[in-house]
Amino acid sequence: RFKRSGLDERLSLADFDWRFNPKLPRSACFDLHTLKFIGEGANALIIGKPGTGKSHVAKAVAYQATLQGYDVRYLEADTEFARYALASTAERTELLKDWVAPDLLILDDLFLARRISEHAAEVLQAIVHQRYKLRRAIVITSNRVVQDWGKYLGDATMASTILDRLMHRCAMLEFEGKSYRLKEAAARIAITPESS
């Protein structure tokens, strides 16, 4: 299940540094980790600044779901949607089927590249619509506030259709704070010996 999921690491909430950004919605993250929302066919939107731990939490929830016997797909959204845009009609049908079928779908870093292609926007709408009808859970992480999604999709009506279905049964988690990656980079620079 882990191999099929597309996850590249086995993360948990136990190895997350909660002290670094104390304002993160810790209890909401642990609530997601119970996986109750999957059984309810609910969704989660994890929105916030880069480097605050959104992907870590999403991957930890996804890994926990694989351990509990759920079929999971983890996608780096922009990369996979770009692959979809370049695929043949037959390949697109297969990809869409693969993204609609699992119990839990993780779309990580949606709108990382801001605008997404027309094909990507259409497949996002199809995924959300079909999974909503089947009551299958989606977790989306993004640096972009939902009010701006219409801009990134290039279609305000499509954005409201997608958000309407996503947010009908949905936990909204807001991640504010400093970037872990910048902290780690600063630590590496600090220990690099100066060249003479």
Rank of each mutant, 00 (worst) to 15 (best):
F2P: 03
K3T: 03
K3E: 13
S5M: 04
L7Y: 10
L7W: 06
R10F: 00
D17C: 03
D17L: 06
W18P: 00
R19K: 11
P22F: 03
L24D: 06
L24E: 04
P25F: 06
R26D: 04
D31N: 11
H33I: 00
L35S: 06
K36A: 15
E40G: 02
G41Y: 05
N43P: 04
L45N: 00
I47G: 01
G48I: 09
P50T: 08
G51A: 07
V57D: 05
A58E: 07
Q68G: 01
Y70I: 00
R73V: 14
E76W: 12
E76M: 12
E80K: 10
E80T: 04
A82V: 06
A82I: 09
A82D: 11
R83S: 15
R83Q: 14
R83N: 15
A87M: 13
E94M: 11
L95T: 02
L95K: 09
L96N: 01
K97W: 10
D98N: 15
A101F: 09
P102T: 05
L107W: 03
D109F: 02
L112V: 02
S117I: 00
E118G: 03
L124S: 01
L124N: 01
A126K: 02
A126M: 08
V128F: 15
Q130L: 14
Q130D: 14
R131A: 00
Y132S: 13
Y132T: 09
R135E: 08
N143I: 03
R144A: 09
V145N: 05
G150N: 03
Y152F: 12
Y152G: 02
L153D: 05
D155A: 07
D155S: 11
S160F: 04
I162H: 09
I162Y: 10
L163G: 10
R165G: 11
M167K: 11
M167F: 08
M167Y: 06
H168P: 01
C170K: 03
L173C: 04
F175Y: 09
Y180K: 02
A185R: 04
R188C: 01
A190W: 10
I191P: 00
T192M: 09
P193T: 07
S195E: 14
